[in-house]
């Protein structure tokens, strides 16, 4: 599971996902495969030798020599604007991974799963949803996905198409709601969590991922409403 050292992938495709984000497909000869939820560390090297390293979750999982990332651009960022605006098919990207064996979901897990993602924090959760759908697992999945506005959602069409009786998808809009939406925009709060997510249970695993403030707020709500902290896994992307 742990593979150290830097590897090189070649960009095979990019796709605009949101006004500020896109997905990036890479061909990686010798990729060992990965579990849903893992990430890689991407390393950029400037002509003068200056290096910057950032972590990016894998939207893909399983065997095979192609992987997918999805990146949101931070306006003043060092790394994300390059990945979103400049990287082209045929370009090479240096990275290490797959990394992390804790914030992961394996197809053989049988308990129900609640996923809660904010913004690009949905990326590792998308890998879990895809892995769940591909494996025909009987575990029940729910995803609560918080975005600023409808157009800010990564993989929106694919997620909507995957919804069925074992995968339930709920949207939360913090700034702009679609026309005719029954509630005004707002942050994920206790009322919403209690209404649309699984109730506390020893047969439940919850994964929360997104900007640090989002993860802190949502995990506090879950623990306050009776969830066992040991069954709530969190991954913080940084920021406020």
């Amino acid at each position: 599971m742990v593979t150290s050292g830097w590897k090189v992938g070649t960009v095979t495709a990019t796709r605009t996902q949101t006004p500020t984000g896109r997905s990036i497909d890479l061909a990686v000869p010798g990729w060992p495969g990965n579990v849903a939820g893992q990430h890689v560390d991407v390393r950029l090297t400037a002509p003068d030798g200056y290096r910057a390293v950032r972590s990016y979750s894998l939207a893909s999982s399983g065997p095979g020599e192609s992987i997918q990332l999805a990146v949101d651009r931070l306006p003043e960022g060092e790394v994300s604007p390059y990945l979103v605006d400049d990287l082209r098919p045929g370009d090479q990207l240096e990275f290490r991974g797959p990394l992390g064996g804790w914030f992961v979901w394996r197809p053989e897990q049988v308990e129900n799963v609640q996923l809660i993602g904010g913004g690009s924090g949905v990326v590792p959760l998308v890998a879990m949803v895809r892995s769940h759908a591909a494996g025909g697992s009987a575990a029940k999945f729910r995803l609560l996905y918080s975005v600023r506005a409808p157009e800010d959602a990564f993989f929106a069409d694919e997620l909507a198409a995957l919804a069925n009786d074992t995968f339930e998808l709920t949207w939360a809009y913090t700034r702009t709601v679609p026309a005719g939406w029954p509630t005004p925009p707002g942050r994920v709060n206790r009322e919403l969590v209690e209404r649309v997510t699984f109730a506390p249970s020893p047969n439940l695993m919850t994964f929360i991922c997104g900007p640090t403030g989002f993860v802190e707020a949502v995990s506090n709500i879950l623990v306050d409403t009776g969830h066992d902290p040991a069954r709530v896994k969190t991954e913080r992307f940084g920021g406020a």
Partner: peptide
């Protein structure tokens, strides 16, 4: 905290 222990997976590898 800014981040959590997940981000250490790469450096510690």
């Amino acid at each position: 905290a800014n981040l959590d222990g997940n981000v250490l997976a790469g450096p510690l590898s």
